[in-house]
């Protein structure tokens, strides 16, 4: 029975492939997702249900944040308007299923890039838009200065189903500490439960800790320990098997970082068209025909920079000016400024 089903399936797939080959034009020919996006007129984007600095709804009802900006960049590149995005708030549990089932086409939801997710879940991570690491928040009056002060028997609040939970298990096992995991599906429940005193520590990515700390009843009563117990490269994800769409999302992100490196901002982008630097000319779409190579028009990158801004502008607007991490950018500074933000050349 299943044997025949498989054969029938491959037959259906072959017919479908033949059909797509014969009917469609250049770029859209190769990308079902691109074709559908143009037809619908908006980019279907999966974000978190609310994480300050990454994806959050402001008072006016608009989505804002670092992760939101990635989808806005894709919309600006593909559809010409950064507002043509349909955002879907997804829980950690729903996110991969939603992407696999086609409910969203880009998943930009502070998602850590791991081997298991990349290979086993049929997803493709296109890049990193935030380098994060897992940390701990504790009460200031506890006197704890680092994770070396942790003792067996403590209770730790966190979110379940994320890499956070696995890192925590690994970390505590490596230190030989016994602990009680109090795991919630939603971040705000975990945070409030920690705040009430049920847990001695709250753990998640450090950017998340910083964002959640601002929402706690008395933010000054809590400190984030200096230790970082994991690497958390957060980035946008697409379905495996549509390499044209994958390239579009990847380079929409890359061009924002490249633009910062070469000093192209939303304010000066139009003026940069007369620049003498060939790379800058490629970034603003005057030279090189980069857009055509992606199956888009050549103004794609100019629109991203003018409508969304470069990476630095996005970071300043969402992370620094909101008071989440007002200080230095740490690893998220450009490689030329001592960070690790380094993207392949736009060439």
């Amino acid at each position: 029975m299943f044997k025949y089903l498989k054969q029938l399936t491959s037959l259906v797939a072959m017919v479908a492939v033949l059909f797509t080959f014969t009917t469609e034009t250049m770029a859209a020919k190769k990308s079902k997702t691109l074709k559908n996006t143009i037809k619908k007129g908006f980019v279907m984007c999966g974000v978190s249900q609310g994480l300050a600095g990454f994806s959050n709804v402001d008072a006016a009802g608009n989505w804002e944040g670092m992760d939101v900006d990635v989808c806005r960049a894709v919309a600006a590149a593909v559809l010409g308007d950064s507002n043509k995005v349909k955002f879907t708030g997804l829980s950690a549990k729903e996110r991969f299923t939603a992407l696999n089932a086609g409910q969203v086409d880009v998943l930009s939801r502070n998602t850590t890039w791991t081997l298991t997710r990349d290979a086993d879940l049929n997803l493709t991570f296109v890049g990193v838009n935030f380098y994060d690491g897992q940390g701990f928040m504790v009460r200031k009056d506890s006197g704890m200065k680092s994770t070396a002060d942790f003792k067996s028997g403590m209770a730790v609040c966190t979110n379940i189903g994320t890499t956070t939970e696995l890192n925590l298990a690994d970390f505590m096992a490596s230190k030989g500490l016994e602990y009680k995991l109090v795991g919630f599906e939603k971040a705000d429940e975990a945070r409030d439960t920690y705040g009430a005193g049920r847990c001695d520590a709250y753990t998640t990515d450090k950017s998340g800790l910083a964002a959640q700390r601002t929402v706690l009843a008395n933010p000054d009563d809590h400190i984030i320990l200096p230790d970082t117990i994991s690497k958390e490269p957060l980035g946008p994800v697409v379905r495996q098997g549509d390499s044209v769409w994958e390239d579009i999302v990847r380079w929409s992100l890359n061009v924002m970082i490249e633009a910062e490196e070469y000093g192209v901002t939303s304010a000066n982008a139009d003026m940069m068209k007369t620049s003498k630097n060939p790379t800058v000319l490629k970034i603003v779409g005057v030279e090189g025909g980069m857009g055509e190579k992606l199956g888009l028009d050549n103004d794609w990158s100019l629109r991203i920079i003018k409508q969304v801004g470069n990476y630095g502008e996005s970071y300043k607007r969402n992370i620094q000016d909101t008071g989440i991490l007002p200080g230095s950018r740490g690893p998220n500074a450009l490689w030329t400024n001592g960070g690790i933000l380094y993207v392949p050349p736009l060439r």
Binding site: A92, K93, F96, T97, N100, R117, D120, L121, I160, G161, T162, E165, L166, V182, G183, F184, E185, E189, T193
Partner: peptide
């Protein structure tokens, strides 16, 4: 699942589902 009691829904249909993706 709403209050972090590790029953079969939270542990298996929650955490395990998210870690494996085998919905």
């Amino acid at each position: 699942a709403a209050i972090a009691y590790p029953d079969v829904v939270l542990v298996f249909a929650g955490t395990a589902l998210m870690q494996t993706g085998r919905a």
